[in-house]
Amino acid sequence: METNRYILSILVDNEPGVLSRISGLFSGRGFNIDSLSVAKTADPDVSVVTLATFCDAHIIEQIKKQLHKLINVITVNDLTQKKYVERELVLVKVHAKTEKRAEIMRIVDIFRSRIVDVGCSHFIIEVSGDSGKIKAFVELMKPMGIVEIASTGTIALGRETGK
């Protein structure tokens, strides 16, 4: 079986315990959540849960069926096979030795990122983009000496479909 990355956009009632039930569904069945992001929508009574996971095609079908059964779930939208816009925001703290500062700044510029904090021995860099861009940036920063990383996780919206 082939394992793929799936992105689900789940509209839910904005009530306490909903996220716990969703994550419980995954942990109770031994499925892993790769990325999880939750925010209110334009309607304050509704939240959107953006969830990324790696699994087999038949497992994602089971997950979607189980999510539909949860009381506070309004809709489950699998964005994986659709056109969508995906973004992550990552803060990366790297060692910024004097001899490496210019190289780090060039890489930051190439990736259209920005340095948001400068210390005597480190930079904190803000990077946003799809998961491929984030992964590529982190790989280039590893030789510089990554001190710490914080990430928002994936957020995504489906693109408008043609007529």
Rank of each mutant, 00 (worst) to 15 (best):
residue 156 A to G: 07
residue 129 G to M: 00
residue 156 A to V: 03
residue 32 N to E: 13
residue 115 I to R: 08
residue 14 N to H: 14
residue 25 L to P: 06
residue 36 L to F: 13
residue 14 N to S: 15
residue 2 E to M: 07
residue 90 V to R: 07
residue 94 V to A: 08
residue 158 G to V: 01
residue 39 A to H: 07
residue 124 I to P: 02
residue 163 K to V: 14
residue 153 G to C: 01
residue 46 V to S: 07
residue 122 H to W: 01
residue 8 L to T: 12
residue 29 R to Y: 12
residue 151 S to E: 08
residue 143 P to Y: 07
residue 46 V to A: 09
residue 42 A to N: 07
residue 130 D to M: 01
residue 94 V to H: 00
residue 43 D to A: 10
residue 73 V to R: 06
residue 52 A to F: 04
residue 50 T to R: 01
residue 126 E to C: 07
residue 13 D to P: 04
residue 21 R to Q: 08
residue 81 Q to L: 07
residue 35 S to V: 14
residue 35 S to Q: 12
residue 57 A to S: 05
residue 109 D to V: 00
residue 124 I to D: 05
residue 60 I to E: 11
residue 35 S to M: 09
residue 160 E to F: 08
residue 43 D to V: 12
residue 80 T to L: 11
residue 91 L to F: 06
residue 136 A to H: 12
residue 118 V to T: 13
residue 120 C to I: 12
residue 79 L to A: 06
residue 21 R to V: 01
residue 162 G to N: 15
residue 110 I to M: 09
residue 55 C to E: 12
residue 7 I to T: 15
residue 135 K to L: 11
residue 6 Y to V: 09
residue 96 A to S: 11
residue 155 I to V: 15
residue 151 S to F: 04
residue 146 I to D: 02
residue 161 T to G: 06
residue 27 S to D: 00
residue 94 V to K: 01
residue 25 L to R: 04
residue 63 I to G: 04
residue 4 N to E: 13
residue 51 L to G: 02
residue 124 I to M: 08
residue 40 K to M: 06
residue 93 K to F: 01
residue 77 N to S: 15
residue 51 L to S: 03
residue 26 F to E: 03
residue 96 A to R: 04
residue 58 H to R: 13
residue 95 H to P: 05
residue 90 V to Y: 05
residue 50 T to C: 09
residue 126 E to Q: 12
residue 27 S to F: 11
residue 62 Q to I: 10
residue 25 L to A: 07
